[in-house]
Amino acid sequence: MPILEANNLTYTYSIGSPFEKTAVDHINLQIEQGEFVGIIGHTGSGKSTLMQMMNGLLKPTEGTVLLDGRDIWEKKADRRAVRFQVGLVFQYPEYQLFEETVYQDIAFGPKNMGLEKDEIDRRVRETAEIVGLDASLLEKSPYALSGGQKRRAAIAGVMAMEPRVLILDEPTAGLDPIGRTTILTQLREYHRRTGCTVMLVSHSMEDVAKYVSKLLVLSHAKVVCYDTPANVFARGSELESMGLALPQITRVFHELRARGMDFPEEVYTVKFGAELLKARLEGSAPVC
């Protein structure tokens, strides 16, 4: 059974006003336990709205969200409990830091869960380590941290609830390349270590291609495809026609194919691309 499931999920903003807009349009989706899902799409394609419905922050206009097969908007369902199981890290999460120390801020979620002090302490220290925050920073004010550190502290705040599904809405937005790679690598490490389901929203193919096991492509409030990165990028030209930029390496290989060289379509990591080229160079066939 999938851990998270969306059936006919629809969300319309400002119904009945001139601003009415359907942000998510009858989406069906099944997320399996332990998957690392990347979600890509343009600004305004409905990514954030979809994610906020997944943990019960927004009530669907139509359709249902099932967590372990149970409707989270059922009459008796406890939405707070759902939010502890489906952790959501918002865009620019550093703007939600408020406690006096980083430690207390990370502990905010677990404290709301009503956990014991020792357990909270373990979680705070463990997640701080996962996101690479030095123990000496824990007693500082969150406002004294650098931008990247703040971001990681805020992510730790959600991780500390040890949710079964961790959703991150553009966790790398506005960071420099080093900050981006750091967070993405840590996320992969977190996924490997805990085996939790991770959903990573991004509008950069480059970012997600390397890390995820499944890709969900959204366009105009609808699902375009939900498949492995290899299969998704095999439909490269279709994605490009929707205005989604493919990873650089994929574009290079598409160009090579266009010039008559026989390469597979789904090259999306530099590593794989390099291997292909190497094999070609070592083989007898001339490159160009």
Binding site: N55, L57, R83, P93, Q96, N112
Partner: peptide
Amino acid sequence: DKIMSAQKARGAD
């Protein structure tokens, strides 16, 4: 709205 949602996501009651 955004901050409220974010804190609710961390279980703020």
